[in-house]
Amino acid sequence: MKKVRIVDVATHAGVSKSTVSQYLNGRFGHMSEHTKQKIKQTIKELNYVPNPIARSLKQDKTFTIGVVVRDISGFNTSRVLRGIDDFCKENSYKVLIYNSDFDAESEKNALLTLQQMCVDAIVITSSGLNSALINQLVSEKLPIVQFQLEYPDCQTHIVLSDYEKASFDATEHLIKLGHSRIGFLAQEFGQSVSRNARYQGYLNALQHHGIEQDPTLINFWDRQAGFSTCPIEMINRDNPPTALFSQHLAITTDLLNLLNSQDISIPEQVSVLGFDEIPMVELFKVPVTVIKQNAYQIGVETAKLALAAIANPKLEQQRHIVQSTLVHRDSCRSIAGSE
């Protein structure tokens, strides 16, 4: 079967070869709707498939962006990826996805591989352990956009949720329900600006309402080791927290499993509020109140910023914030003396 060429499309549609080329590259500025539809129909009739290699060589682009995430199966991450993919498809870009499995060396290899594949931009949730490499790639004019996690020594475009404000609003919600002893369950902050922002929002809410911070209410969690202090032990203290504010879906999941294993009643014995939506939460006996990040929109904004950086190599470093929502459910109760 003879391969259909761009000149065949032009001849069949009764337009110039350059007009078909402009259509394929999304340049419709001076093109009538009639011409666009005629070319579209001709491409369909002839089953024409553009040559991506020739297109890349001509425009010095691969029309591909690389995405590096820590866990592709994550509930929020999967929605971010859907937002990225949808926006890229709408703009004729392909997406290559690499999973780092929370491993810095795997992340480094993914970055180098994507660079060798000549992607036009990279989107990444960074571990914070490859900042020097990321900065080097940026200095070599490869556009990079981070999302979810921010580090002070990694200078790229970035898209984040409103972590500090969302944490403030969640903590204040608990305070207005009468809670003054609020446990804060989080990963070690380290150099992560994002994790520190959540903690700062928690502290700001306590301070705003005249509540003194109690360091014994901070409980750190690790993916391998779990909680530094068992939440059950916290609840059984003489002066226990009346509410627990978890900072990550994985932490919330571990917490709920522990509470369930010990028949701790939510919210009668302790109120629970989580950062990140929970899959199938509507099926829970007690649906959990959460801060819901707009993961899909984060994906869209991230892809949009990546393509903008490709189009304008001189684009100044951008920092976009996407608003989160506090979703009220049954896991937080009002206690004596509340408003």
Rank of each mutant, 00 (worst) to 15 (best):
L326P: 05
D222C: 03
A336M: 14
G26N: 13
Q247V: 02
Q269E: 12
W221L: 06
G74E: 02
I158A: 08
V281D: 11
A306F: 04
I84L: 02
C118E: 13
H157P: 12
V286Q: 06
S127P: 12
A186L: 04
Q59L: 15
A132H: 15
N91G: 03
I175C: 06
Q297K: 10
D60N: 15
H320A: 10
Q148N: 13
E150G: 03
I321F: 10
I218P: 00
N204W: 11
Q116C: 06
Y296Q: 01
V80H: 08
F63G: 07
G74W: 02
N51L: 08
T35K: 11
I72R: 09
C154Y: 11
V69E: 01
I211M: 01
A295Y: 04
V119R: 14
V300E: 06
H208S: 14
Q116I: 00
T253E: 08
R237T: 07
C230G: 01
T253Y: 01
A110Q: 06
I232V: 11
R5A: 00
I84M: 05
H30T: 15
D214M: 05
K89Y: 11
K292N: 14
G201V: 01
P231H: 10
P287A: 04
R5C: 03
G210M: 07
A336P: 06
S126N: 05
F220T: 14
C118A: 13
P241Q: 00
I122L: 11
C88L: 14
T302I: 06
V9E: 08
P52W: 07
P52K: 12
K176C: 12
T19N: 10
A186E: 02
Q191C: 12
L249W: 04
L258V: 02
T229P: 01
F63N: 12
L307A: 06
T302M: 03
I175M: 09
R79Q: 15
D169G: 09
L244P: 00
I291E: 01
S127C: 11
L160V: 05
S194W: 04
P240K: 09
N312D: 14
P52Y: 14
P152A: 08
T242F: 02
L256W: 08
I335P: 07
S106L: 10
P267A: 10
Y199H: 04
Q136C: 14
D222S: 12
E188H: 07
L149Y: 07
A170G: 08
F75R: 07
R5E: 07
